[in-house]
Design a protein around this nucleic acid. Structure first.
Lengths: 217, 217
DNA sequence: TTTAAATATTAGAGCAATCTAACATTTTAT
DNA sequence: ATAAAATGTTAGATTGCTCTAATATTTAAA
């Protein structure tokens, strides 16, 4: 097990490289809020430990070993988030920062018990899949709400962002995991969409928000 | 809020200075498993932050500020231990190491919720008092089992040690908080005592063990 | 009361993680 | 296709926390 810092690097590399399989030094520096040379030297250390593959001026990729460690941390983070919501009764918008701390707790007993108490959950409070203890992940990314055609109705399955400001925004709009929404109008100009919601109210979402919401038709 | 290391120093200084009000550099070094010069330089830093009072070759004392921080950490540690036993169903002998990690979680929400869920408990699973959120502590240290006179019957209220090896030992003897015991025999030679216990069995305890068990007559 | 033992301090070094300043490479735009 | 912009690297310094080796102070013993 590496240091707290190392775990945070691995987790961020995993998150940012999800789409393309790699991440650039500058992206990582921005995410971790450190300067470029800091990332550069840390990447060298992670590469020496065989956690990432890296050659100068190329993207950073996790090795299998690194991926395994990342999935372990993601598992702990998501179990912690669900635990905080289900057991401690916290709101989905306030659990991220606490889970960022709990994900570094080193105790398989602790996480086994939480897993059991929650009855071996498959998804966290934001609809993101929880890797099982072997690191397997049962993800079925559906469609982004920003891609849903006008007139279609779908159910919100996940949000791919767990920062407080974003979730506060959804709370204010009255949107939750499991809600059924119908796309009334898609604006060509700015990508914003208007939804019909169970609350009977029409809800306007910008593209920036809609693209972070995932639905199943 | 200081670093993890700093919190561990403050906590240990608090624990070791309980009896006499101060602690020596060498004791602290032993407890924290670091060398003397390490403690020496750290103490200087803590003194610069007004968390401890220290003059060379004198004992280390917590300032009011340091005491307040220590009590905050102790509170979190003990709430965490009780939570791990009551909510996650772990044994009292296995919660210490996990609580050592959870005590550094920085989130008043998290601990408020745990406190509420446990219905504002006054004692941890080892019978040690839990400071309230303002740092007040309602301790009533009774008598050490090692001082209890022959023939007397008393109830175990606390154990002043939460290391696994010690608690495993008590588990093996079948002793728990709340148990009623009668002192059958006190050996002058080595301070060991023989107890009559609800299990009907006679239990022999060495002085080293008995002095860590507290009872109320 | 001088010596020996125990305890504490200082000096100097190393590693992890960070920074700034200077320089290098790659990509994009004119 | 060259200049400008974006991105990445190296060098060298800083801070937190730790160490070993050498030195100093206090306490206990002969």
């Amino acid at each position: 097990m590496g240091s707290l810092t190392e775990e945070n690097y691995i987790k961020s590399i995993y998150a940012l490289s999800q789409a393309t399989g790699e991440v650039y030094v500058s992206e990582l520096a921005k995410k971790l809020e450190v300067k470029l040379p800091t990332v550069n030297s840390m990447i060298k250390r992670l590469a020496a430990k065989k956690l990432v593959a890296y050659a100068p001026y190329q993207g950073i990729k996790l090795t299998e070993k690194g991926k395994k460690e990342a999935l372990g941390i993601v598992r702990k983070h998501r179990l912690a988030e669900l635990f905080l919501v289900k057991v401690l009764g916290l709101g989905w918008e306030e659990v991220h920062d606490i889970a960022e701390q709990l994900e570094h707790v080193n105790s398989s007993r602790f996480y086994e018990r939480i897993d059991e108490l929650l009855d071996y959950p498959k998804f966290d409070p934001h609809g993101e899949p929880i890797p099982d203890s072997s690191g397997k992940i049962h993800a079925q990314k559906g469609t982004s709400l920003s891609d849903l055609a006008e007139g279609l109705t779908a159910t919100i399955t996940a949000v791919t962002e767990d920062e407080k400001s974003f979730l506060d925004h959804l709370n204010a709009k009255g949107l939750q995991i499991g809600d059924s929404v119908t796309v009334m109008k898609r604006e060509f100009f700015d990508g914003s969409i208007t939804l019909q919601h169970k609350s009977k109210k029409e809800i306007l979402l910008t593209h920036q928000v809609a693209e972070r919401i995932w639905v199943e038709v």
